[in-house]
């Protein structure tokens, strides 16, 4: 069953077309990788699905479990299960990480008409999730991402993912800025989220991450469209041959 369906998506930023009729389906339980050269529109795809202001579709459709996403604001999309792990997670001075995640979780639960999580129950959840990601619990009392290293910020993203339990995970260049140990921990965290009722979109420039998070399908994004699709072997082929053959031929 298709969970995520993107059809003919067009996004223009500052009069420049970035996505030019992108079409993509991700079935339930699958992990799809989006690979492509710099400037291909990879991050734009993540932002457009998550609803970032300024990245609105000019044409096309995006639906999640059969429901249209494009008419919803970012918080509504989050409550429907959309989670975008940022390439560069934002620092928020003055808001402790714990407070932020609990506020976000309860806002999502309210939006879905569910009961909020009590403070003690939340603390228990966080402690377990932090231990699994080998994170220092005291760090979570500090303002969100402020003074965190690149690896700590990415772990913080995975921790939020584990606590918010989204059904659509979009990982934007999650491997950037990670050393090999951090990469393994982050990938383990992501793999632990794989479930038959979840779908994942892994956006990456390099094949390396896909050694740790094995995709079911690999798509090549170039010039704002999917230009090739295949199995995991396609990632290795790209690593060996580069993106040259997908780039527009210079005049």
């Amino acid at each position: 069953m298709t969970m995520l369906s993107i059809h003919n998506l067009r996004v223009t930023i500052a009069d420049k077309p970035i996505l030019n009729g992108l079409t993509l389906d991700v079935p339930a339980g699958e992990v799809h990788a989006i690979m492509g050269p710099n400037g291909a529109g990879k991050s734009t795809l993540g932002y457009a699905v998550a609803g970032r202001p300024g990245y609105e579709a000019t044409e096309g459709a995006v639906s999640w479990k059969g429901e249209d996403l494009l008419g919803l604001d970012p918080a509504e999309r989050a409550a429907k299960g959309v989670f975008l792990s940022f390439q560069y997670p934002i620092e928020i001075p003055g808001v402790p990480a714990l407070t932020f995640v609990r506020t976000a979780l309860n806002a999502q639960k309210r939006a879905r008409g569910e009961d909020e999580v009590s403070a003690p129950a939340f603390l228990k959840m966080v402690k377990a999730a932090a231990a699994a990601l080998k994170m220092d619990f005291d760090m979570l009392k500090r303002p969100l991402n402020v003074g965190f290293s690149g690896g700590e910020k990415k772990r913080m993203e995975i921790l939020q993912m584990a606590l918010l339990e989204p059904s659509l995970l979009i990982l934007d260049e999650t491997d950037s800025g990670l050393d090999i140990d951090a990469l393994r921990i982050v990938a383990d965290g992501v793999n632990a989220m794989r479930r038959p009722d979840r779908a994942m979109l892994v956006i990456t420039h390099y094949q390396r991450l896909l050694d740790y998070i094995r995709p079911d399908q690999v798509h090549v994004l170039a010039g704002g469209r999917i230009v090739a699709s295949g199995g995991p072997e396609l990632a290795h082929k790209l690593e060996a041959e580069g993106y040259d053959k997908y780039l527009p031929v210079a005049a």
Binding site: A75, G94, F100, Q108
Partner: peptide
Amino acid sequence: DEAALFYMQQRGLPADEARALLTQAFLI
């Protein structure tokens, strides 16, 4: 900060709540 506002909304905070939290963080 627009980027911070989007980040907070992406995690599920409605726009008003995100603004209030950022404003409080600024003033506190």
